[in-house]
Simulated scan of single mutants.
Amino acid sequence: MTPVEITRGDSPVVLGLPHTGTCVPEDVRADLNARGRGLDDTDWHIHKLYEGLLPGATSVRATFHRYVIDANRDPSGASLYPGQNTTALVPLTDFDGYDIWDRTPDDAEIEKRRATYHAPYHAALAAELERVRARHGVAILYDCHSIRSEIPFLFDGVLPDFSIGTNMGETCDPAIERTVSAVCDRAEGYTGTINGRFKGGWTTRHYGRPQSGLHAIQMELAQSTYLDAEAAPWRYDAAKADRLRAHLAEILTELADLAPTLPKPTGDQA
């Protein structure tokens, strides 16, 4: 299995796709229980949803499933949301809190997966961001995610359709957050929030260094906005998706147009 797929473009926008992969090596699959083998916590069809929305955008996509190892978690294993229910670098439960393993991976196995999957994905993402920044002076990482809109184990109530994460404004220039939020606010029939339950995962927090010309923002979409139902077999609803894609295309286009106006790093900030 090739752990990462890269599509290179000349836009200042880089799409991160850490959770849309469904590949599970046979030795890992053998250790999952029946519930785990359902792969329910996939960001289903996200690569299809964003495909072709911004000509020239670079994309970096993890092909492996998040149950193998989560490409959007701190490789040290530190929690993104201390004190709240969440899932680990190698999840032991699904989003509903149920065990997913017949045989739980030990520390040696987790380290093997980190080196084999997590590290190559982030090496590729870092390299593409540097390439894009060298070309444009800045790079904007737009990290693409989706999740079921109702998961009581992780959050109360129903998620907004658009959940924007910038770690309370730390990971990008304020103009980027304003631009994305404004498009979401104009999207008739959709709801949105900034830095609510999702403030940006490890990817957004790790790469978002605005003073260095690297900007990062996470978009967590409610799967009800583009799936037929938030349950197996997780069918893509073309009519819903096309309506949503128009707004996503507007977001990405406005980000690409905004990039030349962003402050460029100088001296040792680069």
Results as ranks from 00 to 15, higher is better:
residue 32 L to T: 05
residue 64 F to R: 07
residue 46 I to S: 11
residue 18 P to C: 08
residue 33 N to I: 05
residue 28 V to K: 01
residue 26 E to A: 15
residue 31 D to R: 15
residue 29 R to M: 14
residue 60 V to M: 06
residue 24 V to T: 07
residue 18 P to E: 02
residue 43 D to M: 07
residue 21 G to K: 04
residue 85 N to H: 14
residue 65 H to V: 09
residue 42 T to A: 08
residue 57 A to H: 09
residue 68 V to Y: 02
residue 34 A to T: 08
residue 74 D to Q: 07
residue 53 L to S: 03
residue 16 G to I: 06
residue 61 R to T: 14
residue 67 Y to A: 05
residue 61 R to N: 03
residue 58 T to P: 04
residue 44 W to E: 04
residue 39 L to R: 09
residue 69 I to D: 00
residue 34 A to F: 08
residue 55 P to M: 13
residue 49 L to K: 03
residue 57 A to G: 14
residue 40 D to S: 10
residue 35 R to M: 00
residue 32 L to D: 05
residue 44 W to P: 11
residue 84 Q to E: 13
residue 38 G to W: 02
residue 36 G to M: 06
residue 60 V to C: 08
residue 36 G to C: 09
residue 48 K to N: 09
residue 83 G to F: 05
residue 53 L to C: 00
residue 23 C to D: 12
residue 85 N to L: 01
residue 24 V to A: 08
residue 78 A to N: 12
residue 30 A to D: 10
residue 59 S to V: 07
residue 68 V to I: 13
residue 22 T to G: 04
residue 34 A to V: 08
residue 58 T to I: 10
residue 80 L to H: 03
residue 28 V to Q: 02
residue 59 S to I: 03
residue 87 T to G: 00
residue 68 V to P: 00
residue 30 A to Q: 08
residue 70 D to P: 01
residue 12 P to T: 09
residue 74 D to M: 10
residue 64 F to Q: 12
residue 19 H to Y: 03
residue 56 G to Y: 08
residue 48 K to M: 13
residue 61 R to M: 15
residue 23 C to W: 10
residue 65 H to F: 13
residue 61 R to D: 02
residue 72 N to L: 03
residue 29 R to E: 11
residue 74 D to T: 04
residue 66 R to S: 03
residue 12 P to D: 00
residue 35 R to G: 06
residue 36 G to N: 04
residue 35 R to E: 09
residue 21 G to N: 03
residue 38 G to I: 07
residue 59 S to Y: 02
residue 53 L to I: 09
residue 26 E to Q: 13
residue 42 T to S: 14
residue 33 N to S: 11
residue 43 D to H: 07
residue 23 C to F: 14
residue 69 I to M: 02
residue 51 E to Q: 14
residue 21 G to P: 06
residue 75 P to W: 12
residue 45 H to K: 07
residue 52 G to R: 01
residue 44 W to T: 10
residue 38 G to P: 03
residue 87 T to H: 05
residue 50 Y to K: 05
residue 20 T to V: 15
residue 29 R to L: 15
residue 17 L to N: 08
residue 18 P to H: 05
residue 51 E to H: 15
residue 61 R to C: 07
residue 51 E to F: 02
residue 64 F to P: 07
residue 32 L to I: 11
residue 71 A to W: 00
residue 27 D to M: 00
residue 73 R to A: 01
residue 16 G to M: 06
residue 89 L to S: 09
residue 80 L to R: 02
residue 74 D to R: 10
residue 70 D to F: 01
residue 38 G to Q: 15
residue 28 V to F: 01
residue 48 K to W: 10
residue 70 D to L: 06
residue 55 P to W: 07
residue 43 D to C: 06
residue 38 G to F: 04
residue 83 G to Y: 07
residue 58 T to F: 06
residue 84 Q to H: 15
residue 87 T to R: 15
residue 56 G to V: 14
residue 80 L to G: 15
residue 42 T to K: 11
residue 65 H to R: 09
residue 71 A to S: 04
residue 19 H to W: 01
residue 48 K to F: 00
residue 20 T to D: 15
residue 81 Y to F: 12
residue 19 H to V: 12
residue 32 L to R: 05
residue 89 L to T: 06
residue 27 D to Q: 06
residue 53 L to H: 03
residue 14 V to P: 08
residue 88 A to C: 08
residue 19 H to E: 01
residue 50 Y to R: 12
residue 50 Y to N: 08
residue 28 V to Y: 01
residue 58 T to A: 12
